[in-house]
Amino acid sequence: MNRGLPCVLSAMLVLAACQREERDTRPQSALGSGDQPAAVTALEPGGQRPASSNNKAGVFEANAFHLSEGKRLFNWFNCSGCHANGGGGMGPALMDQKWLYGSSIESIHATIRDGRPNGMPSFRDKIPDDQIWELAAFVRALSGNAPKSAAPSRDDDMMPHPSENRLPDAATLGKSP
């Protein structure tokens, strides 16, 4: 028994946690330069669309360190100036489930890197590719698309919105704040 418990525990945690906690500060080798732009629409002529060929970006999405770096950069690079803390302003809201240019992390990466015509500036060459991936991962986390266990919780600033862990539970409590 004494031996069994740690084994089960560790197996569970190995599966769940290893990559989530890794703090690779030079992750660039993990991905290509991200040159293959992602399709931004779900509509494709000629039947079923092929599966996404490159899922390496998942490394960023499931990693708590990268998500938290993304959150920091989101403020540092003034993303919050337009998108507020996810609610939007000059730019569209990011915490809802509406995606103008595709919801995949690759699409978001492309949006940040190349910009979009209706106002999203292009940060090509201005933000290193790793950091764009981190930002994209965080943006997806804003609408609850990253594992919550890896996603950052509240800020140490003014509370912009109910804590991440509260969001889905507003319904449970019977009303929104």
Binding site: A84, G86, G87, G88, G89, A93, D96, P160
Partner: peptide, 11 residues
């Protein structure tokens, strides 16, 4: 702008 009311700092 179809902003999200959950974010108090939006707009």
């Amino acid at each position: 702008g179809d902003l999200d009311p959950r974010d108090a700092t939006a707009a």
